[in-house]
Design a protein around this nucleic acid. Sequence first.
DNA 1: CGCTTTCCAAGTCATCTGTATTGTGTCACG
DNA 2: CGTGACACAATACAGATGACTTGGAAAGCG
Lengths: 229, 229
Amino acid sequence: MPKQVDHDERRRVIAEALWRVVDQQGILHLSMREVANEAGVSLGQVQHYFSSRAELLGFAMELQSEQTSGRAERRMRHLGARPHPRDVLRILLTEMLPLRPDTRTASRLSAAYVLTALHDEHANARARDGLRQGRRQVTRLVRQAIADGHIAADRDPVVEANLLLALTGFTPLLELDVISPHAARTAVDQHLDRLFDMPPGTATSPGGTKARPTTKSSRTPTGRGRASR
Amino acid sequence: MPKQVDHDERRRVIAEALWRVVDQQGILHLSMREVANEAGVSLGQVQHYFSSRAELLGFAMELQSEQTSGRAERRMRHLGARPHPRDVLRILLTEMLPLRPDTRTASRLSAAYVLTALHDEHANARARDGLRQGRRQVTRLVRQAIADGHIAADRDPVVEANLLLALTGFTPLLELDVISPHAARTAVDQHLDRLFDMPPGTATSPGGTKARPTTKSSRTPTGRGRASR
DNA sequence: CGCTTTCCAAGTCATCTGTATTGTGTCACG
DNA sequence: CGTGACACAATACAGATGACTTGGAAAGCG
């Protein structure tokens, strides 16, 4: 055998080039040639590693998804052994929003994939499964937080999980500069504050942690106030 | 002069054909030929009324925006002379979500336009202005509701408006069948219930209406419960 | 009737698309 | 020292796309 090349590594390089193209030019200008050009390789090479455009897009999407999960997990490790579910949710949500260049790329790719998924059966199944898994994860988190007494017992975990996921609706507002990243973070914090705001005298914690500060803007890693924009 | 044709009417017919194409095929398969085909006219005619693809898309978007506003206003007329802001917000939000075939079309078109706006300066300005105007409207509504004592005075109208707009984040979940329309409506109602949930003994209403039922799931047009999915 | 203006159908063109094919250099192994 | 499996590069191809051009039908006015 010849050349001996790391197959996965090559595919990763090409997929990352695709990310940049989607991020900068949009999915409308996405072509195999463009990706090859961005990756600094020939079209032939791209086709050697991906037999079709759809396969390339799917792989790039999957890789991006793993990358995002990785980022989130890495951030969670800084929360200690038994992190408060509020902080976990905060990380999950902020990693989903286009608040930084890397998450912006991820967000744009994800949006593009959702759009293609609307009219492509295979992509549809993939995207749907991904979202459903995320929803399960959030629902489980909320359910556990209720069981641990961090969230009022009369909250419906399913409804609350849905409302949390809906916060990704900030994405277009952020992308089009209608609200600032700061405002988005403030709103997310506000929502979380209210979700974890236990009415006094409602302590049923079988878990370790007890009640929390109740008033708004109580605790955020950077401790910001209300703010507007 | 010949034929004497209603210019605006033709443009409207073509734009509506574009809606159908975007709704059914997606913006990726959107071409002038496809639109002409869908409208049942020749490519030449489409180009006679729209000098470029971008102009056609912009016009179709604007028309859709007017249509959506019209639908919302029509629904609001059924609310009586001085509608409760909660009901107004409920209409605005549900008209923005893909809960029915017509709003689904609008939602898809809007999403497609946002995506193109990310990399087209002109479309960007348009989309941004539209969103900002919507945001102003919602902010004003919330502010007024606070002044009228329908919403607790310690709520920040800007943050609340942002959170309300974020509820459009249900769109991808609905489109990909991750949550049901029913679940989305339930979540929206839940959010509104909580927003308008006045702590007892906090009445400062200078407006006409007084306090409202406080507990969750208090009042919705169809009077549904909590529900899941 | 003719003239002019509006409308629009059809064709052309350059470009870009994903895919297929062909050829060539490279390297491990027998 | 082949030789053959692999990793490409180059090119070709058929189809689609947006924009442009040309030509002519229709209809109002004189």
